[in-house]
Structure formats: C-alpha cells, structure tokens
Amino acid sequence: MILDKIHTEKMFLYYSEKVALKDISIKIPEKRVTAFIGPSGCGKSTFLRSLNRMNDLIDGVKIEGKVMIDNINIYDKNIDVVNLRKKVGMVFQKSNPFAKSIYENIAYGPKINGINDKKQLEEIVETALKNAAIWDEVKDRLGDSALGLSGGQQQRLCIARTLAVNPEIVLMDEPASALDPLSTSKIEELIVQLKEHYTIVIVTHNMQQAARISDNTAFFYLGELIEYDKTKTIFTNPSKKQTEDYITGRFG
C-alpha cells in the first residue's frame, strides 16, 4: 500500500487579501513523482512553495486550511520551520550554487546541521553527488568553484546539495526549464531514479516532461486544482474539459 506523504485539506492562500489558491485538497503519495501542470500564474509554484513554507519569506502571505506532511500540520504554531525545510528540500528553477567550491556547496547543508567530521562529510558529499548522477563529472575537481560548471551540471549539483541534507521530500520548481534538451533528459532520468528513495513533487511547464516522468499529475488553473489523477489518465482520458483543452494545447 502506498502512503500519502503530503495531503492538504481545503487550503487557501492569500497574497495580502487577494486569493491565490482556492480550496486545494490533494493527496500526494510517498516515493512517487507527482507533477503540477498548468498555465503561468495558475498557482502551481505558489502551492509548491507552501509545502516547505518558502512563502513565509514573502510579506503578506496568509494560509488557511490544512497542509499535512506525515499527518502533521506544517503551519501549526509549534512547527520549527528550519527542521521542516531539512525534511522537505527544494530545487529551484534557476540553478543557484553558492560561490564556493563544489565540495563546499554539498557540505554546506550537513555542516549547518552540525556535522563536522571530515571523513563523514566526504562520504556524504560523494554519496550526494553520486545520487545526483554528477559524481563522475566532478570527482577530480571537487575543490574548483561550482560557478565554473555548465548550467545542467550546476542544476544537478543543486539537486545533490539538496540530497546531502537527507530530505524525505524533494520539491522541484521547473528544474529543467532553463536547460538544453540533453541536460533536461539527464535531469529527468535522475528524477525517475530518485523516487526510489524520495517523494518528488515537480512543477513543470512542459507537459511531455510531466507525461514522461510522473506517476500522478495535478492540473491547476486560476488558483484552483481542476483535476488530479494518474498521469496516464490525465493525458489520455481527462474528465474535465479544461484539462483536455490545456493538454491538447488549446490554451495556455
């Protein structure tokens, strides 16, 4: 049986009085890839960012309803946001490595979590880079600046950096939208591998990408969750007309 890692109930999100997300109820299964699709401004990225409370950084954002991870409401008063973000990692649209060496980029997360043992750090770095399928490309130059890597490599480095903190969930906000087709296919391959250990939630503009890599797909439109089902069903036999119009390219 597949457990629900994340579920929301009647969740609303307001940008200073303006409703950005309306009545979102969704169940996201553990160790699966769940894709959010929809036209720009539909709220899919906003929703993704509310799953690790990155929206907290924006003034005037208010959330109502339940956002449960492992059956705990992450917006409860006694939730430690720092611990939440260790458990729910995030990969951003634009790769954003620190201006540090490749090694230091990966070791950053473990270090702030108090791991200082050199041997242990080296192991974590190697494992994270291997899991992000970039170890072979960088193993001989771990001391070089991460900014010298190509765009695709930087993004896989950022994925490795996220994995190094040992999260249970990895949120990805259009992780391949700025990359060339070859780098994109590498990232996609990687995502499919990662679901063996991690629950992946990915926002994407690219419907073929959602169809290729995800198990479930949610279609958002104007701040509402229009349809959510097995990816196969969404792309071959959607039950809502809006979904069908979007995936057949009639709007968006």
Partner: peptide
Amino acid sequence: PQDLRAASLALGATKWQTIRKV
C-alpha cells in the same frame, strides 16, 4: 542574489546562518 538566500534557507539554514555563511 536573493536566490542564494533562498537556497540556503531551503537547506534548513537559519536566517543568521544564511547571513554568516552566504
């Protein structure tokens, strides 16, 4: 860049750790 602050916070760093180390 704001992206770097976001990256650090998303790794579970506190605000002060982000300021000090990034």
